[in-house]
Design a protein around this nucleic acid. Structure first.
Length: 625
RNA sequence: GGGCCUGUAGCUCAGCAUGGAUAGAGUGCUGGACUUCUAAUCCAGUGGUCAAGGGAUCGAAGCCCUUCGGGCCCGCCA
C-alpha cells in the first residue's frame, strides 16, 4: 500500500471521533500540508463545523486533537491544532516507509482499479496522409499516447485508434501534383516520402492553384474519384497515402507512440455506414429537413446557442462533418461492425497494429468501447460538440463521447524568422498548406545531435552505439515532456532554441535523476535487503518516501481528469526530491553498513517508481547520460 | 454579432474542479558549492496591486456579475 494508508487512517479516525463527540457528519478533507512545518497532512474539519458548533475552528481542532491523541493509530505520530484552525498530522515514517518501499518494487505498483477493465477507445494522431508530422501534430500524439497509458494503468481496457483521412481534399491535392503538376512520385535521394509530399508537392501545388484554374478543377474531380474508390486514380491515391502513412508511423513510433488499429476513411465511405446513421438520426428526430431560409432543402442539426449546421446539402450530398458521424458511432459500437481486420505491423513493444478491411476473409475483432475519447485540437470544438451531442443521444448517456481538446502549437517569432517569415515579433499559427511549420523529425534530429555532444563530453568511455541510444532517448524525453507539462488549454509557442534547453523543469532533468540513481546501484554492487526498519530518517529521505508513496493517488487524479500534465508534474517532483536527497545524503559512504543498505533501498525504490512514472509519459530513461 | 479558451514574478508556467495557514516552480539576474554516489545537479538571494472593478462569504488567486486585454472558432469547403 501507499501513502493512502496514512490518509485513510486519519479520515476514518477523525470521522469516528466526530461521531463520538456527537458532531454532525461533514465532508471534511484530508490534504497534504502547504508547508513542511505543519506536518504531513491537515484536516479542515474545524472550519466546516465552526458555524454549527458556534466555536472557533481552532477550538474544534483542539478538541479533536486531544481525542485523537488518545488513539493515535499505526501511521500517525503526532496530532496538533494550529492557530489557523487546521488540524495537523505528522506521519510515522518508520511505520509507513516499510509499506511504501516494499510495495514500490512490485511491477504493478501504482495500478488502480478505476476502469474495472471496461473498454475505452482513445483516438489520436489522425494526421492527413499527405505530409510529414510537424510539432503541432506531436502535441496531439503525445497527449493521446500518455492519456491511453494512464487509462491502462487505471485498469481500463484501452484501444488506441488512428484515423486515416485518405479520401479528403488534402490527399487530392498531392494526387493533382503527381498526375497533373509534373511531380515525380519518387522523392529526391535521402528525403523521406512524407517530407517530400508535404514540403514540396503539397505546398507548391496549393500555390499554383492561384494562377491555374484548370489545376484547381482537377482537384475537385480527383476528390470525387477518391470518394467513389473504384477508379485507377483512387487506386493510385491509395498507394500514395499508404506510402505517406508508413513514413508518418515511423515518426510516431520513434516518438514512442503505438496504436491498435488504423481506420481508413475510404472504407467507412464504402461500407455505407452513413445511410444507416442518416436513417437513425431521422427516426430519432435528431436532424430535420429545413423548409425555408438559407438552408432550405438541407438536412440540418439545430444549433442550441450557435447557428444550425448543415449535414446534407440540398443536392443530397453529405458534408464533411457528416463523414465523421458514422465513424464516431462505430467507435462507440452503436452500429453493426462492417469491417474486418488484418495485421498491419508488429510494433516495437510487440503490440500488433491492425487495419480495417472490407474483405470478409480477414479476421473479426472488436475495437469499439463504452466510452470514446477523441483527441483533437480545440479549433474543432464546434464540430466535436455536434458529434458529441448526437452520440450522447444515441447512447442516451452523457459523457460516452469525450472530445479531449487542447490549444494548438504556434511558432515563435524567432523560429518563424528561421523559415524566412517576418511576423513582426508575434508568434504565428502553423499551416501545412502554406509551408509554415517545423517537422517533428527535424526537431528530434537537432535535439538528438545536441544531446549526443553533451553525453559524449560527460561519458568519454561509452561507445558510439550507446551514445546514440542515450541521445535519442534524451531527445525524445525532452520533446515529449515539453509537449505534456503544461495544461491542455495553454497555447504552446514552440521555439527551436528554447526547446534545446535541457536544464530545469525538463525531461532530461528527470532522466538525469534516474541515471544518478542507477549509478549508485551499479557501484553498490549488491542488491539491497528490504526487510529493514526505516528509522532515523532525514527530512530528505522522508520527503522522497512520501513522494514515492503518492504515485497511485496521482494516477487516480490524472485518469479521472484526463490530465497527462499531472503525471509530468509528479515525475518532476520525484526528480526534485531525489536530487535533494542525492546532494545531501551519502549512500555509498554511509556511516554504517545498515544505513547504507537502508539508503540503497530508497534509491532502488526511487528508480523503480520513477521509471514506471516516466513510462506513463512514454519517456525512457538511460542508465548513463 | 455569437460561441469556446485565456490573463498569477522580467519571461514560461503550477495552484482554481473541492474557498482556509506567510501565493509556488522553472528560467533570468546576483552570489556560493565539483580531489566526493556524474555540476544535465544543489544551496542562498532577487523578483507578485494573482488583468481591473463590484458581489456573496467569518475568509477569495479560486465562486458569481461587469469591464478590459490576448488567442481560436462560426461555409450547402474539407
Amino acid at each position: 500500500m501507499t501513502l493512502r494508508l496514512f490518509f485513510d487512517e486519519i479520515r476514518s479516525n477523525v470521522a469516528e471521533i466526530c461521531n463520538k463527540l456527537g458532531y454532525a457528519p461533514t465532508d471534511f478533507d484530508i490534504t497534504e500540508t502547504s508547508r513542511p512545518e505543519f506536518g504531513d497532512a491537515s484536516c479542515n474539519i474545524g472550519f466546516l463545523l465552526a458555524r454549527s458548533l458556534k466555536k472557533r475552528p481552532f477550538d474544534i481542532a483542539e478538541i479533536i486533537s486531544s481525542e485523537y491523541n488518545k488513539i493515535k493509530g499505526k501511521f500517525v505520530l503526532g496530532v496538533s491544532a494550529h492557530d489557523s484552525g487546521y488540524l495537523n498530522f505528522t506521519a510515522n515514517y518508520s511505520a509507513l516507509a516499510g509499506h511504501i518501499i516494499t510495495d514500490s518494487i512490485n511491477s504493478d505498483y501504482g495500478k488502480i482499479d478505476l476502469g474495472k477493465n471496461s473498454k475505452i477507445v482513445v483516438e489520436h494522431t489522425s494526421v492527413n496522409p499527405n505530409k510529414a508530422l510537424h510539432v503541432g501534430h506531436v502535441r496531439n500524439i503525445i497527449i493521446g499516447d500518455v492519456v491511453s497509458r494512464i487509462l491502462q494503468k487505471a485498469s481500463y481496457d484501452v484501444s488506441v485508434l488512428n484515423y486515416v483521412d485518405d479520401s479528403g481534399l488534402q490527399v487530392a491535392d498531392i494526387i493533382v501534383g503527381f498526375k497533373y503538376g509534373g511531380y515525380s512520385d519518387k522523392p529526391p535521394e535521402g528525403q523521406k516520402f512524407d517530407h517530400y509530399c508535404g514540403d514540396i508537392v503539397y505546398v507548391n501545388i496549393t500555390e499554383r492553384y492561384e494562377n491555374d484554374k484548370s489545376l484547381a478543377e482537377k482537384r475537385t474531380l480527383i476528390l470525387k474519384e477518391l470518394e467513389e474508390g473504384k477508379s485507377d486514380i483512387a487506386k493510385f491515391g491509395d498507394a500514395i497515402t499508404r506510402r505517406v502513412l508508413e513514413e508518418q508511423l515511423k515518426t510516431c513510433w520513434r516518438l514512442g507512440a503505438t496504436y491498435d488499429c488504423l481506420n481508413f476513411e475510404s472504407q467507412i465511405i464504402q461500407s455505407n455506414l452513413w445511410n444507416t446513421i442518416f436513417e437513425k438520426m431521422k427516426s430519432m428526430n435528431i436532424i430535420e429537413l429545413e423548409r425555408e431560409g438559407k438552408n432550405a432543402g438541407c438536412w440540418i442539426i439545430k444549433g442550441e446557442s450557435e447557428d444550425d449546421k448543415v449535414l446534407v446539402r440540398s443536392n443530397g450530398v453529405a458534408t464533411y462533418i457528416a463523414k465523421d458521424i458514422p465513424y464516431a458511432a462505430w467507435k462507440l459500437g452503436i452500429l453493426d461492425d462492417p469491417f474486418f481486420y488484418k495485421q498491419y505491423a508488429i510494433q516495437k513493444n510487440n503490440r500488433i497494429l491492425w487495419e480495417t478491411t472490407l474483405d470478409n476473409k480477414d479476421a473479426k475483432l472488436k475495437f469499439s468501447g463504452e466510452r470514446v475519447i477523441t483527441v483533437i485540437d480545440s479549433r474543432q470544438s464546434r464540430l466535436q460538440n455536434i458529434i458529441k451531442k448526437i452520440m450522447n443521444d444515441f447512447k442516451s448517456k452523457e459523457n460516452s463521447y469525450i472530445h479531449l481538446g487542447y490549444e494548438s502549437v504556434t511558432l515563435s517569432a524567432d523560429t518563424a524568422k528561421s523559415l524566412n517569415l517576418d511576423t513582426g515579433g508575434k508568434s504565428i499559427q502553423m499551416s501545412g498548406r502554406k509551408g509554415i511549420y517545423v517537422n517533428a523529425d527535424y526537431v528530434l534530429d537537432i535535439l538528438s545531435a545536441k544531446t549526443y555532444e553533451e553525453a559524449k563530453k560527460r561519458n568519454p568511455d561509452l561507445d558510439e552505439i550507446r551514445l546514440l541510444q542515450i541521445s535519442e532517448q534524451v531527445a525524445i524525453g525532452a520533446l515529449r515532456y515539453a509537449m505534456i507539462k503544461q495544461d491542455l488549454d495553454k497555447l504552446i509557442t514552440f521555439d527551436m532554441t528554447e526547446s534545446l534547453s535541457l536544464e530545469g523543469d525538463t525531461g532530461p532533468y528527470i532522466q538525469y535523476a534516474y541515471a544518478r540513481a542507477m549509478r549508485i546501484l551499479e557501484k553498490a554492487e549488491i542488491m539491497p535487503k528490504f526487510d529493514v526498519v526505516f528509522d532515523q530518517l532525514t527530512s530528505h529521505e522522508k520527503e522522497l518516501i512520501k513522494t514515492i508513496g503518492k504515485f497511485d493517488m496521482q494516477i487516480e487524479d490524472a485518469a479521472k481528469n484526463l490530465s497527462p500534465k499531472t503525471i509530468a508534474k509528479y515525475c518532476y517532483k520525484m526528480a526534485v526530491s531525489f536530487n535533494a536527497f542525492y546532494e545531501h545524503v551519502k549512500v555509498l559512504t554511509a556511516e554504517s553498513e545498515s544505513l547504507k543498505n537502508t539508503r540503497l533501498c530508497l534509491v532502488y525504490s526511487f528508480k523503480e517508481t520513477i521509471s514506471k512514472a516516466l513510462h506513463l509519459l512514454g519517456i525512457e530513461a538511460p542508465d548513463r547520460m
